[in-house]
Each structure stands twice: as C-alpha cells, then as structure tokens.
Amino acid sequence: MVRFLEQFINGLSVGSVYALIALGYTMVYGIARMINFAHGDIIMVGAYVLYVCKSIIGLPSIVSVIVTIVFCSLLGITIEKIAYKPLRKAPSLAVLITAIGMSFLLQALSLLIFGANPITFPSVIKVSPIYIGSITISGITIITFVVTFICMIGLTYFVNNTKAGSAMRAASEDKPAAELMGINVNRTISMVFAIGSALAGVAGFLYISQYQSLMPTLGALPGIKAFVAAVLGGIGSIPGAMLGGIMLGVIESLSKAYISTQLADAIVFGILVIVLIVKPSGLLGKNSIEKV
C-alpha cells in the first residue's frame, strides 16, 4: 500500500509536468490549428537558461526561475512571428515541416553553445521532504504540485473569466468572426504562444529539477509524451490536456512499478491507441465536423 501510494504520488508529479507541457500544445492547436513540434524544445531552452542564470551568472534561484519563464515566453512569441505567422495561409503540411525544422534549429543551437556532453545541474529546489506516516514526499514533488496547481487555476480563470481569455476562445472557434468583433487575431495568437511557452518554461524548471542533467535533446521525450497527453485528453481542450497529462503520468509510474520498466512506454502508447479507437476526439475533445 505504501509503495502504491508513493508510486501514485510520483505519477501525479510527473503527470502534472506533462500536463503543463500539454497545455501549450493544446492551446496552440486550438487557436492556430497546428502542432508546434518545437514546443518540447522550449523546455530544453528553459532548462539551459535556468542553468546559465543560476550556475554561471549566479542569480538567486527565484530570480533565475522568473528569468527562465520570461525568456521562454519571449522565445515562443519570436518563433511564432518569424516561422509560423508568414505561413498562416499555407498548407498545414508546410507549417508542420517548419515546426519540425524549428525543433532541430533549437537543438542545434544549444549543441553549438553548450556542447553534446551532459551537464550536471543540481536542483534549485531546496525544500525538505515531508513524511506522512511511512510515505515520503520529496521537496521537488511538493513544489511541482504547488506550481502546477497555481498555473492551472490561473490559466482556467484567465481563459474563462477575462476579456483576453474570451477573445482567445472566440478566435479558436472562428477567426473571421472574431476579427469582426474587433479582436486582433494575430495578437491573440501571439499571446497564446507567450502563455504556452511560459508554461513550457515552468515545466523546464520542474523537469530539470527532477532529472538534474542537461542535454540538447532533453525536451524531446517529455515533449512527445505531453503531445500524447494532449491527444489523449482531446487536442484543443484545456481541461483535456490537464486530465491527459496527469493520467499519462500515473499510468506510466504505476506500469513501471508493477508491470515492467521497459514496457511502461509501450503501455502508455497502447492506452492512447485504445482511447483513440473508442473515442477518436480524445477523452474530453469535442466531435467537431470540419467546416468546408
């Protein structure tokens, strides 16, 4: 029982990081109808920025984290502006290829700057673990829960209760109609990239605190898993991304503990396949008919 609970909590923690990343995929898909394959690499950039701020420049942890989030957010806006915006009316395949190219570009740049050897980077989180009975919850897990909880509540409030959030939902549903309301759709798309990338920055901070080793390809695996989480929850759905991410983390963690470490990823992707066969739009996705 103790082992189960520990694995479950561990799964929730990993899953909430997936959820943060999945939110970026799903929000960008919702408004720009594209899969931003460079999204995972923003996590990597975030991890390196945190490392530079903390270990090289020597800024205090909290300042380093804030700089990381702001940097990622600006990076997201910049990528959208230079790479995706000119392709707003291009076929979706062109946008997809561009996104993959952007992903390689970010990895190559970090390879060029930081080299291929992994860099050890001790966690910036210095919170002592808490003990509940015989269960130990690490400081990183606690911080992960608190941070993702705040992000999700904040995002949900923003999307549902603010004017900008309402504009975002309108632009996701019907761009010309949103323009006719006086909404600057281009600026709204920019804002979505800013928010999604800021969340990727947060995820980068949490992820690197857990794994403590920097590599130019570190964003690839959490990126692809979060993408799976977004599809599992229903791409385009914000609650779907949260649910999908957390489910994925828990399933992965329990599979590793009880079934097989090697098979864990196969199980996760197997579940995705089953869900998509039963409900092709994902768990919370809407069955939308493509408008002609």
Partner: peptide
C-alpha cells in the same frame, strides 16, 4: 457565425 461554444451573454460581451 455566432460563437456556438460560448453562452449568449458571452457572445454579446464579445
């Protein structure tokens, strides 16, 4: 071209 997934009130606010 109303926003079908938003409420009547939200549409008017938009």
């Amino acid at each position: 071209r109303i926003f079908a997934n938003q409420t009547v009130y939200e549409n008017l606010k938009l």
